[in-house]
Nucleic acid binder design. Structure first.
Length: 948
RNA sequence: GCCGAAGUGGCGGAAUUGGUAGACGCGCUGGAUUCAAAAUCCAGUUUCCUCGGAAGUGUGGGUUCGAUUCCCACCUUCGGUACCA
């Protein structure tokens, strides 16, 4: 009886669904284990072969843990709010809710065809009002809290207001964007609006005017990570800086915890580094420079307070608040011109140009250490959003300051003697301080401390830790997102909705175009925005990152209408034990999810400090892109295409690379990939505009319809992202219908290490297919009849099985799924050699294989006459004693090079082996005329004889 | 520039703590079966030569009885990030 996956796979999937095989209960005396995938955005394109890679790995792990006796939570859902659905709606008029639901349905079908063990009863999707009710609630809670730096946790804002009334803000240590100080009396004297405005500067969710990345084309603000090279990541439209009033989340309050808690989680070094770079902690000092002739001071942040004696000028960001105030009349025009020049430049131009630019504002500051007057400049190399937006410039010890000073002829005082450290760069912060009064003679680190101490004594500054991390804006002027649960009163003060008034449902409209003045389409819906009590609603919606910041908690208790999840469920499941997903979410999603989790932890609503204990980044399955070359100079009615080998010999500038659909290309992905005559005909059919083109190779030319025997036009292969626009998308459906789901799953794992990116190719899939047939064949005799023996297994058979058990267990634990597959291949090959059909062996092998190939193993399980599902079987126990041999074959090395082998009893001592080794033929041969100087024996491993 | 990861046969890759380099699979070669093909099965397959060896894990050094693995310098590729004060 042949192995025909088509006949068994769908049958078992239907069966599992009907039986609820993968249903998970919150009531279990088993230990819990939570395996989570990053939920997908349900795009219109559907799944390609790259998407399931991580899902397969996590499914194998989840199934493995389940067989090992854990109660495993392994859910799936959809990140369903976002820009693409809305862009699609603008183009087609199809409502985002409609297209999103259609796409989700397609994803569910595609995912279930892959045989995943998800508990679909727990599905969550972010655009579901029953879900976003709690997204809105968490936002409202963030609004109602501030971050107390003394208590190191979030506290209710109401308590802060009480403290202000009792003692002002002088002693309050809290994360805030408020610069001023006030006493209790001053606070109590403030009117309602002033008090509310002040509290706003302390809230964890707050509104402020800020410079945002505005994309006119998309009609919305974008987060920094949605902007790549100065254009929008989606669509590639221009992005400009624009001052707008926006909602922000005070993630910076958690900067230090987000950084230090990385130590307690099991993530890859590269991912931790990305996060810690993003947080960008740097230690230094904040110093105040008096502005000559005023009572004002300018605050700077520096990591090098030791070089303050070398600060010969200051630079402010062109957008700095104090620029207008200090600019003298004579310099007004020059400064205005410069600011205009900076504003006119696009992000792209700013990034490309490295030339120093700036303008003197006419005012002077006083260097607090030298007491000399130093000019104040503005320059675009000083960024408004980093530090205080102002620097003290030390041209001797900062490369950029040096370039600036050199260009504008500003004074340079050398304050660090670096002769002791000839190889050190400026960023190493090494040297001995000179020309610097009380700091002279000190090493840099010592001088930094001394300078900070002195600054504190003088009352002009203090130690300060600065973070690169910024509060990212949290509003989008779009339609397809969670409405903010916010209303404004007649004074414009924000009020959040109570939980009983949630969810605030997204109102239905078919008019998705952004409204005027950078406002969301919701602004047009006056019935919705204007409330009977005179209040008005916030019309922005939340960004896509909102819904994904806490979805993992909802899976624990997805249908709860009283809370985001019950405390009982949360305390049972606690946190995600294993999280699998792509590294493209390394910053935004993972940072926000950690932030929200920590906030909920501060409130005592989740028991753990971190949401994701272990994280595995799967690599990307890339696509191959095939090109032919179009001669740009050829006439329109007879375009000339040349093969890759011809193009390589001529100047690049003469040719345009034209992508060809991979389906038309023979041997795609290999250096010998080519377009045959048939391929060219397909290409012409696909791109009729090239019907009259001439296709040229070193052997001759071809034109549409021409009679030729053989024509092979070499194409150029490149590896890149799989995407519709590159015509290289491989759909899993075709692979599955040919080889079966089990084969597809195992082949994706067999491709290589899970963390590695690699181009998709089906070259090796036959090997895996053969393996499954051979596994199946173990249960049948030559005539194809079922034949399983109840005889006791031999020692050799047990050894083969237990070798596999050990190999597979060890490799699953270290996420090395490719070597698991090879372990299974070795095992079946060996069992085949012994013609083993013993039930005792094959039954265990079947359970071992079940996480990888869930369908065929279930079929075999049934045929073995077992009851229940193989996926609820008892996992085989590894027994070391089956691996023991009477004798061990040792490799014999001479001077570290293997020259032969010798067998020794497995209980022979090191001395026995050493003595015996001397008399081995091979050793005698190699030591002839030389002396044996040393013999190294590693018991059970090898023997090395040193001769010479 | 800075940070991180990685460079192994014709190809994907294996070697978990310094201990037989190339597991497993693809491809290729030869054979069996077949009228023939597909499928299947068996054997071989790092390179080089004088068939006994020699070389060999990006390059050059080093530590060690022994290095793909550790150290130093460099090269290349990929990923992140960038006037970050």
């Amino acid at each position: 009886m042949d192995y025909t996956p088509g006949n068994i796979e769908q049958k078992w999937r239907d069966h599992w669904k009907a039986e609820g095989t993968y249903k998970v209960s919150n009531d279990s005396d088993k230990p819990k284990y939570y395996v989570l995938d990053m939920f997908p955005y349900p795009s219109g394109a559907g799944l390609h072969v790259g998407h399931p890679l991580g899902y397969i790995a996590s499914d194998i792990y989840a199934r493995y843990k389940r067989l090992q006796g854990f109660n495993v939570l392994h859910p799936m859902g959809f990140d369903a709010f976002g820009l693409p659905a809305e862009e699609y709606a603008l183009q087609t008029g199809i409502h985002p809710a409609t297209s999103t639901h259609e796409n989700m349905e397609r994803y569910r079908e595609q995912l279930s065809a892959l045989g995943f063990s998800f508990d679909w009863d727990r599905e969550v999707y972010t655009c579901d009002p029953n879900y976003y009710k709690w997204t809105q609630w968490i936002f409202a809670e963030l609004f109602e809290h501030y971050y107390d730096q003394a208590a190191k946790k979030a506290m209710p804002i109401a308590e802060l207001a009480k403290r202000f009334a009792a003692e002002g803000n002088l002693k309050v240590k809290a994360a805030n964007s408020y610069k001023g100080k006030f006493t209790a009396d001053e606070w109590n004297a403030m009117d309602k609006v002033a008090q509310a405005d002040t509290l706003m500067e302390y809230r964890l969710a707050y509104r402020k005017i800020g410079y945002v990345n505005w994309c006119e084309e998309l009609g919305t603000v974008l987060a920094n990570d949605q902007v790549k090279d100065g254009v929008s990541e989606r669509g590639g439209y221009p992005v400009v800086q624009k001052a707008m009033k926006q909602w922000y989340l005070r993630i910076t309050a958690y900067a230090d915890r987000l950084l230090y808690d990385l130590d307690e989680i099991d993530w890859s070094d590269s991912l931790k580094t990305i996060q810690s770079n993003w947080i960008g902690r740097s230690e230094g000092a904040s110093l105040f420079f008096e502005v000559e002739g005023t009572n004002e001071k300018i605050e700077v942040f520096t990591t090098r307070p030791d070089t303050t004696f070398g600060a010969t000028y200051m630079v402010l960001a062109p957008e700095h608040d104090l620029v207008a105030k200090f600019t003298t009349d004579e310099q007004k025009q020059a400064v205005a011109d410069y600011i205009a020049y900076v504003k006119a430049k696009s992000e792209v131009e700013r990034q490309q140009e490295k030339e120093v630019t700036g303008a003197f504002i006419g005012a002077y500051a006083i260097n607090p250490f030298t007491k000399t007057r130093i000019p104040i400049w503005i320059g675009e190399y000083v960024l408004k959003d980093y530090g205080t937006g102002a620097i003290m410039a030390v041209p001797s010890d900062d490369e950029r300051d040096n370039r600036f000073a050199t260009k504008f002829g500003l004074e340079i005082i050398d304050v660090v003697d670096k002769s002791k450290y000839p190889d050190a760069t400026l960023s190493d912060k090494l040297g001995i301080i000179k020309n610097s009064g009380f700091l002279n003679g000190m090493e840099v680190p010592e001088a930094i401390t001394a300078a900070c101490k002195k600054a504190e004594e003088m009352g002009i500054g203090e130690m300060h830790i600065n973070y690169k991390l910024r509060d990212a804006n949290f509003g989008r002027q779009r339609y397809w997102g969670e409405p903010f649960p916010v209303m404004y009163d007649a004074d414009g003060l924000a009020h959040v909705l109570k939980v009983e008034d949630l969810p605030l449902k997204l109102p239905k409209t078919d008019d998705f175009k952004p409204a005027k003045g950078g406002r969301s389409p919701l602004a047009r819906m006056e019935d919705w925005t204007n409330l009977p009590n005179g209040m008005t609603r916030e019309t922005d919606v939340m960004p896509a990152v909102a819904g994904s910041s806490w979805y993992f908690l909802r899976y624990m208790d997805p249908n709860n209408s009283e809370a985001f999840a019950s405390q009982k469920a949360i305390n049972y499941w606690r946190d995600v034990d294993l999280y699998v997903g792509g590294s493209e979410h390394a910053v935004a999603h993972l940072m926000y999810a950690r932030f929200w989790h920590k906030f909920l932890h501060d409130k005592g609503l989740v028991p753990t400090n971190e949401p994701f204990k272990k994280l595995v980044n799967q690599g990307m399955i890339q696509g191959v892109i095939e090109f032919i070359f179009l001669d740009k100079n050829s006439p329109q009615d007879a375009r000339r295409f040349v093969s890759a080998d011809i193009a390589a010999q001529e100047p690049d500038s003469d040719f345009a690379k034209i992508p060809v659909h991979v389906d038309f290309v023979s041997n795609y992905g290999s250096p010998k990939s080519f377009l045959s005559k048939e391929g060219i005909e397909q290409f012409i059919e696909w791109r009729p505009d090239y019907k009259t083109a001439i296709f040229e190779t070193v052997d001759g030319t071809y034109q549409h319809g021409q009679a030729v025997d053989k024509f092979e036009m070499l194409t150029l292969s490149e590896v890149g992202k799989m995407s519709k626009s590159k015509f290289n998308v491989i759909n899993p459906d075709a692979v599955i219908s040919r080889y079966g789901t089990d084969c597809f799953r195992m082949y994706e794992m067999f491709l290589g290490p899970i963390e590695q990116s690699k181009p998709w190719d089906t070259k090796g899939i036959d090997g895996v297919s053969k393996f499954l047939k051979r596994y199946w064949g173990l249960f049948f005799d030559k005539n194809g009849d079922w034949s399983v023996s109840d005889e006791a297994p031999t020692k050799d058979e047990l050894k083969i099985l237990h070798t596999a058990i050990k190999k597979v267990n060890d490799d699953i634990e270290r996420f090395s799924f490719n070597t698991c597959v090879s372990g299974f291949m070795v095992c079946t090959n060996d069992l085949r050699k012994w013609r083993c059909n013993k039930r005792a062996i094959l039954k265990e092998l079947t359970i071992l294989l079940a996480p990888f190939a869930p369908h065929v193993t279930e079929e075999i399980w049934k045929r073995l006459g077992e009851s229940g599902s193989v996926h609820h079987a008892t996992y085989p126990t590894f027994d070391e004693s089956h691996l023991k041999e009477d004798s061990i074959e040792y490799p014999i090395s001479i001077n570290g090079k293997k020259r032969g082998v010798a067998e020794f009893s497995s209980d022979a001592s090191r001395d026995d082996i050493m003595a015996a080794a001397k008399n081995l033929e091979i050793v005698k041969k190699w030591s002839e005329g030389k002396q044996i100087r040393k013999i190294i024996v590693v018991p059970g491993r090898m023997v090395n004889v040193v001769v010479g």
